Simulated assay, not measured.
Amino acid sequence: MTTMTEGPDELAVRVRALRRARRDAQIRASRVRRVLLAPTAGPDPYALPRGRPRRHGRA
């Protein structure tokens, strides 16, 4: 924990480090949110069509 023997310079260094860490965390969170909320890719035009299988011969 912190003690009262710290000078104002050490306190300022710690405050700056905490603010930088908070800002970095917020930036990371916003980037993750942007990726998760990004629109997904459309359907693959080269994928096989879904539906009932077609029978080419007559039984």
Rank of each mutant, 00 (worst) to 15 (best):
Tyr46Ile: 03
Pro45His: 02
Leu37His: 09
Arg52Met: 10
Pro45Phe: 01
Leu48His: 04
Pro49Tyr: 00
Arg23Thr: 09
Arg33Pro: 00
Met4Asn: 09
Pro43Ile: 07
Pro8Cys: 05
Arg34Ile: 01
Ala47Val: 00
Arg23Cys: 00
Arg20Ala: 15
Gly42Tyr: 00
Glu6Met: 13
Met4Gln: 08
Arg20Glu: 12
Thr3Ser: 15
Gly42Pro: 01
Ala21Gly: 10
Arg52Pro: 06
Arg14Ala: 13
Asp44Thr: 03
Glu10Asp: 11
Arg50His: 02
Arg52Ile: 10
Ile27Ser: 04
Arg20Gln: 12
Pro43Ser: 09
Gly7Ser: 13
Pro43Asp: 07
Leu37Tyr: 05
Ala41Ser: 13
Thr40Met: 10
His56Met: 09
Met4Cys: 06
Ala41Ile: 05
Pro53Cys: 03
Gln26Glu: 14
Leu18Asp: 13
Ser30Asp: 09
Gly51Arg: 03
Thr40His: 08
Arg14Lys: 14
Pro39Ile: 05
Ala47Cys: 00
Gly51Leu: 04
Val35Thr: 11
Ala38Gln: 11
Ala21Glu: 14
Ala12Val: 06
Arg20Ile: 05
Ile27Lys: 06
Arg52Gly: 03
Asp44Glu: 02
Pro49Trp: 00
Ala17Gln: 12
Thr2Ala: 15
Pro8Trp: 06
Leu36His: 09
Tyr46Lys: 08
Arg33Cys: 01
Arg55Pro: 00
Gly57Val: 15
Glu6Thr: 08
Leu36Asn: 12
Ala21Arg: 14
Arg22Val: 10
Pro53Ile: 06
Thr2Leu: 14
Gln26Val: 07
Asp9Cys: 06
His56Ser: 14
Met4Trp: 04
Val15Ala: 14
Pro53Ala: 10
Asp24Leu: 12
Gly42Asp: 03
Gly57Ala: 15
Asp9Met: 09
Gly7Cys: 08
